[in-house]
Design a protein around this nucleic acid. Structure first.
Lengths: 266, 266
DNA sequence: CGAACGCTTGACATTTGTCAAACGGCGTGG
DNA sequence: CCACGCCGTTTGACAAATGTCAAGCGTTCG
């Protein structure tokens, strides 16, 4: 299945020279190619004919590194690009005026982020790296033009937006109708499925986020999250130590997640 | 401003012969025209050049009536159409296996519904009319084709999907980070803004949904909603009797809604 | 090696949910 | 047109879940 070594490497940045960057916004840019990317079938190029792939390659003109703790997009930034996550792990969140934050999602390789900004021409979420990450930059204007010529790209982009809507609606069910433990079980199963879809173990992985970030995502306090994990452990559902989790009894976890089968999509 | 007469008419169906229809799915179809529709600038045709409007007219090939209590789309239905709400009022909700329901949104004239189905080719929400309604049916396949030729339509459709994402993210902030009273104040202000955007009073309107539906939407029980309204009334924030609400002190309501300025979009 | 940060756990407070009863408006049928 | 019954709403008393505050511990990173 998976050993500690692989776990460490799960979403680590690809090897390459580490450039210096400013304290907030990060990263020197270099060219990237969808046609050579291992995330092809999770990301924008999905379903594109090989013949059209070179059009897509021109779309994605650069990559950028974002180091742990750095911000890729700040809520309020003008909307110009979409970002395809090539490696690493991001969180997105919105803030109220009084400083309260609500984590909206955790993003991993193959996810596209940023299209919430289309409507108002400004981004509405902040995107921050939870570990060193690499993103492909897609000029939205170019995507629009190419999509009008490549129906499969058009379709895939619709799909990805639609999937985000469905994902959020699952999260709403979670926040609006589920108990603390149900939420936590659903959260773990969701992460598990997503790691599995990327070729990693569904039974063992590292959490990239703090208890507080999990709590914000699930609408709970960090203490409730901590206690929840402890109780899961007492019951033999999971084995958890700090950020490292093993899911020991998926069936029971699923039943604990209640009506829902482990969150939705993404 | 607005009188009782107007309130009654707010989103009532247009005059016309009432056809018979089955107990569940409703409605005889007839042709419709975007170019003659008063919801033009809230809906798909927004920003389209007059010259292109006839292309859009061909897109929307029929309308359909949905009577109060009837279901327009059932979760699980195959995805083929989008629906533009011409008049009336709908709710959309998702259900867990154990029967719990989470209301995801309330929809009024000018809203487009159904695009959550694009990703999986099946609808994931159920859409039910809270009052007699009329919808315009848009074959998604046609929309795709026309959008590739009319950039403004493409753009507007992106915007509407993006807006839905932003709307949901506002709802998540509400469900995950706000107290019962904050949620309720935000809810009222959101309805107020949306009625205002459609030319109705922002200070006085009829709720189309039960306390239970409001509760489901806000992640609360119907009793908590009822008590909340009562307390708002005691404090002079609102005047409420059954489904009829007057917002008496918008400023205080906004402060009660806390960090957020009355929900997001739509 | 030390400080800062994240995590755990306990005691207690508060919010919200649950259960129950009663009211009232509205629509239906007599 | 009126009476009855149903459904939605209100309100109360109580229970349970989760949040708050506080202390202490372990890890990790500089």
């Amino acid at each position: 299945m998976l050993n500690a070594e692989m776990l460490r490497e799960t979403t680590a940045p690809l090897a390459g020279s580490m450039e210096r960057c400013g304290p907030e916004r990060a990263g020197q840019a270099w060219r990237a190619q969808c046609s050579a990317c291992s995330m092809q079938n999770l990301c924008l190029p999905r379903g594109i004919q090989p013949g059209d792939l070179k059009l897509i390659d021109e779309l994605v003109y650069t990559q950028r590194r974002v180091k742990r703790g750095q911000t890729l997009i700040e809520a309020g930034d003008p909307f110009r690009n979409l970002y395809g996550l090539r490696s690493g792990f991001l969180k997105s969140f919105v803030s109220a005026e009084d400083g309260r934050e609500q984590v909206i999602g955790f993003h991993m390789a193959g996810d596209i982020v940023g299209f919430e900004g289309i409507d108002s021409d400004r981004h509405s979420r902040t995107l921050t790296a939870l570990e060193d990450s690499e993103v492909c930059i897609v000029l939205f204007h170019n995507l629009e033009r190419t999509a009008a010529r490549v129906p499969a790209l058009q379709r895939q982009f619709y799909r990805m937006m639609s999937r985000e809507i469905v994902r959020e609606q699952g999260l709403m069910m979670l926040l609006g109708a589920m108990s603390a433990e149900e939420r936590m079980a659903a959260f773990l199963l969701n992460l598990s499925r997503r790691f599995a879809a990327r070729g990693f173990s569904q039974h063992e992985f590292n959490l990239r986020m703090t208890r507080e970030e999990i709590g914000s995502y699930l609408g709970l306090t960090l203490e409730t999250v901590s206690r929840g994990f402890s109780r899961f452990q007492e019951r033999g559902l999971i084995d958890i130590k700090q950020r490292r989790v093993k899911l020991l009894d998926m069936n029971l976890l699923e039943r604990t997640a209640g009506g829902r089968k482990g969150d939705t999509a993404n």
